[in-house]
Simulated assay, not measured.
Amino acid sequence: MSWQRAGQMLEVCNCTLLCPCWLDMTAQPDRGWCGTAIWFDIERGTVDGLDLAGLES
């Protein structure tokens, strides 16, 4: 499966400074649990030839 994507991404989490998951998937959240939300605004892209332009998730 071939993916290409360009656009904006917003990620928020409950960690004090930076979500440790982006740096090390074995790192523990600094508050003992993870609360996060991720939003994508796809300006252009394809998945196996399917146009993704303008999608949000």
Rank of each mutant, 00 (worst) to 15 (best):
D30P: 04
T36H: 11
D30N: 09
L52F: 02
Q28G: 02
A6F: 02
P29W: 00
W39D: 01
Q28V: 07
N14A: 06
L52Y: 00
A53L: 06
D24R: 06
W33T: 06
R5L: 12
L55R: 15
D51N: 15
R31G: 07
Q8D: 12
C34T: 04
L10K: 14
T46E: 15
M1S: 15
P20H: 02
W39P: 01
W33G: 05
L50S: 13
M1G: 15
I38N: 07
A37S: 09
R5G: 06
W3Y: 14
R44D: 14
C13R: 01
R5I: 13
C19N: 11
A27V: 09
L55K: 15
I42K: 01
G35I: 08
T46W: 09
C19F: 04
W39L: 06
Q28A: 14
L17P: 00
R44H: 12
G45N: 10
C34Y: 01
G54V: 07
S2M: 11
V47Q: 12
I42P: 00
C15N: 05
L52I: 04
Q28D: 07
W3G: 06
N14F: 01
S2H: 15
D30K: 00
R31A: 10
A27W: 05
G54H: 05
M25D: 11
E11K: 10
L10W: 09
A27G: 10
P20G: 07
A53S: 15
W22Q: 14
G7E: 02
N14I: 02
A53M: 07
L23P: 01
G35S: 14
